[in-house]
């Protein structure tokens, strides 16, 4: 029975990763966007090292947040357009399982690359090498929360005209706490207080989002196909 119900999780995960691989160009756009946005800041602000050092972590976090937002609409749109979403909703397995699989696949494709390239980009801002670890961990904990919260927004705005703008308005305010604790973790480490409190809060937020977001998403998707 267990293998029966988790079967759909891995089937959806495998399919979404395969689709991401076949449509690589779409995925690369997100990463390219992240790199370009981050690179704009040194040009706009000038090569004043102290200033760059101060804004570095915040810029990386805001850019990660915007790139996540950029790719969110793709999460369910394709399946909604071709009817796969109906079939998924008619599955006898719990909807939260496959919703979770879709979000995990989405994060692996759009969030994980950001976590990996962020330390390299941080060097442009001369962020201290000692805090690169904290920056990476904060992004690794924070970007899944962004994906989970964003998925609810994507499900709620599915099939609406002008859904993209509405999605941004819905989701961005909810991203603020994640941004505060994510970027704050690096500041705290630099300030000597230690980042553990911030990272623990992010971890707690991630667990909360993991527990709640798939159910909320599934409910929103049922409304969207009606």
């Amino acid at each position: 029975m267990l293998s029966g119900t988790s079967g759909i999780f891995f089937a959806v995960l495998r399919r979404d990763l395969l689709l991401a691989w076949r449509g690589r160009a779409d995925v690369l756009v997100t990463i390219a966007f992240f790199v370009v946005v981050v690179s704009l800041f040194p040009f706009g602000i000038g090569a004043e090292v102290n200033q760059l050092r101060a804004i570095g972590p915040g810029v990386l976090w805001v850019a990660a947040l915007l790139s996540t937002l950029l790719s969110l609409h793709r999460l369910f749109a394709r399946d909604h357009a071709d009817g796969t979403l109906e079939q998924l909703l008619l599955s006898p397995d719990p909807a939260a399982l496959w919703v979770m699989a879709k979000i995990v696949a989405h994060w692996i494709v759009t969030g994980l690359p950001l976590v990996i390239v962020a330390p390299a980009l941080a060097l442009w801002f001369d962020v201290e090498q000692g805090v690169l670890g904290v920056l990476t961990v904060s992004l690794a904990l924070g970007t899944p929360i962004l994906a989970l919260i964003g998925a609810i927004g994507a499900a709620l705005t599915l099939g609406l005209r002008g859904g993209g703008v509405l999605l941004a308005l819905l989701v961005l305010p909810l991203y603020v706490p994640v941004l505060i604790f994510g970027a704050g973790a690096v500041e705290a480490e630099l300030g000597g207080i230690g980042a553990s409190a911030h990272l623990l809060l992010l971890g707690g937020g991630l667990l909360g989002a993991l527990a709640l977001a798939p159910w909320a998403c599934a409910a929103a998707l049922r409304i969207a196909v009606e």
Binding site: D82, G83, E86, S91, P92
Partner: peptide, 18 residues
């Protein structure tokens, strides 16, 4: 109910890339 049901709708539920 859904374990007993097979629904094929207007939309073919096919992904173009697969």
């Amino acid at each position: 109910f859904h374990a007993d049901l097979l629904y094929l709708g207007h939309l073919p539920a096919l992904d173009d890339l697969l």
